[in-house]
C-alpha cells in the first residue's frame, strides 16, 4: 500500500507546516464560493485559469493530505469508467484518483463536489479534501456499474 507509506511519511515530514500554510487561502476560496450566489465559484485571482487550455500541475500537502494534479500518466488506471473526463489530467488524494470532469467553460467538478464548479484543479482537490473530512476515496473501479 504505497499511499499509506506516502501519507505517513508526509504527515511526519511536511504535513504540519505545508498543511497549515495553505489552509487560510483555501478558506478564502470556500467563502468566495459560498457567497457568489451563482453557478460559478471562481476564487478571486484565479479567473485567468478558466481561459487556460490546460491547468498547471501541482503537488502539495493540504490539511495533512497529499493532493496531486497534472497530466495523466496513463499507467495502469485507464478505462476505469469508460472515459477520460479529466481531459488528460488526473487528480489524486493520498494516491487515490479523484474522478474529475471539465465543464465547457473550463471550470471543473469532481465526483465528490459534483454540483459546484471550481476554477482550477487545485481548488477542486482542496474542496474534496475539505468534504472528505479525513475519509479515503473509494477506488473508481468500484463506482462503475
Amino acid at each position: 500500500m504505497p499511499r499509506l507509506t506516502r501519507r505517513q511519511a508526509l504527515s511526519a515530514a511536511v504535513g504540519a507546516t505545508a498543511g497549515l500554510a495553505v489552509t487560510g487561502a483555501a478558506f478564502g476560496t470556500a467563502q468566495a464560493a459560498a457567497s457568489s450566489g451563482t453557478g460559478r465559484t471562481e476564487a478571486a485571482g484565479s479567473q485567468h485559469a478558466v481561459h487556460q487550455a490546460a491547468p498547471g500541475s501541482f503537488d502539495e500537502v493540504y490539511r495533512g493530505r497529499r493532493i496531486q494534479g497534472g497530466p495523466a500518466d496513463g499507467g495502469g488506471h485507464g478505462g476505469h469508467d469508460g472515459g477520460h473526463h479529466g481531459y488528460g489530467y488526473t487528480v489524486r488524494i493520498d494516491g487515490d484518483e479523484l474522478h474529475v470532469m471539465r465543464n465547457a467553460d473550463g471550470t471543473w467538478i469532481s465526483v465528490v463536489n459534483h454540483y459546484e464548479p471550481r476554477s482550477t484543479l487545485r481548488a477542486l482537490a482542496r474542496a474534496a479534501v475539505i468534504d472528505l473530512q479525513g475519509a479515503d476515496l473509494v477506488p473508481l473501479a468500484s463506482l462503475s456499474s
Partner: peptide, 25 residues
C-alpha cells in the same frame, strides 16, 4: 439545472451537502 445564471437545481444539492453534493446524491 444551474450551470448558468442564478443557479437553481445545482445550488440545492450544494445547500444540503453530504452525499447530496456528490455523484451518489
Amino acid at each position: 439545472e444551474g450551470w448558468r445564471g442564478v443557479n437553481l437545481h445545482n445550488r440545492v444539492h450544494v445547500w444540503v451537502g453530504g452525499q447530496m453534493g456528490t455523484g451518489a446524491s
